[in-house]
Design a binder for these strands. Sequence first.
DNA 1: TCTTGACTTAGACAATGTCCAATGTAGGAT
DNA 2: ATCCTACATTGGACATTGTCTAAGTCAAGA
Lengths: 137, 137
Amino acid sequence: MSDLLERLRGRGWRLTAQRRVVAEVLDGDHVHYTADEVHALAAERLPEISRATVYNTLGELVSLGEVIEVSTDGRAKRYDPNAHRAHQHLVCGRCGTIRDVHPSGDPLADLPAQERFGFSISTVEVTYRGLCPDCAA
Amino acid sequence: MSDLLERLRGRGWRLTAQRRVVAEVLDGDHVHYTADEVHALAAERLPEISRATVYNTLGELVSLGEVIEVSTDGRAKRYDPNAHRAHQHLVCGRCGTIRDVHPSGDPLADLPAQERFGFSISTVEVTYRGLCPDCAA
DNA sequence: TCTTGACTTAGACAATGTCCAATGTAGGAT
DNA sequence: ATCCTACATTGGACATTGTCTAAGTCAAGA
């Protein structure tokens, strides 16, 4: 995590207590939290942190490419700190849990040129939907 | 479209003016509208139609499998009437346009069993993001 | 045509996210 | 070490999208 904080400082980030706490919350786990969950977890350490700051900080981390924003459904976006390794998502349609999985091929190769309609494609997202073991039971 | 209305009636749908208009709006175009856009277009023909009815009807069409719900970003869901044919989406990150494209392989085959973590997977969504020819210019 | 249960409506409410003016502060300048 | 100031934070109002409910309405079978 000090890596992340160093990278951010190198990019001219002003290092505040709030930003540090948000970054630490995201770094802790392979779970992908919603903005509200990040806020709640951050507030455990820094009770007066505001929602606006959490939203701002998450947005900054996303535009710096340190975190990926995942919209799995019509619910709240989730934030995926694992931005540096190619991966895809497994989503439980019942409880909303998201897990990272790792692809065995390059999905972009599956789209023939004549199906690209002149688009310049920069990313491909693959989402597998189903039920996690707990919800299936 | 009369096909769709017939199918719906066959499934016990009560055929009201509101439902007919919503189905017609969806059928009209290859564009994928948001619920609000559907409401606006439906209201051109049936001015008193309420938002709740549009949401209800869209939800029913989705659970009947006649329409697919697409969340491309954190914004409003869009409704894709092209549910009968397997396809994926090409999304312009600038203007939000969505185009349907057609896969050449089965993306589910790319996920090895040991990466499924016990999930029972029912669908796979693939989204290609980039810029459409107009926005790239 | 009559009846009935499914459908529609308006608007309150909920969840998530954005914006702004006032206030606070990190870190360079002195 | 202290001061400045541009950048960051705050709280709350507001916006967008979607859900729910109670009361009225209507499609379609008897």
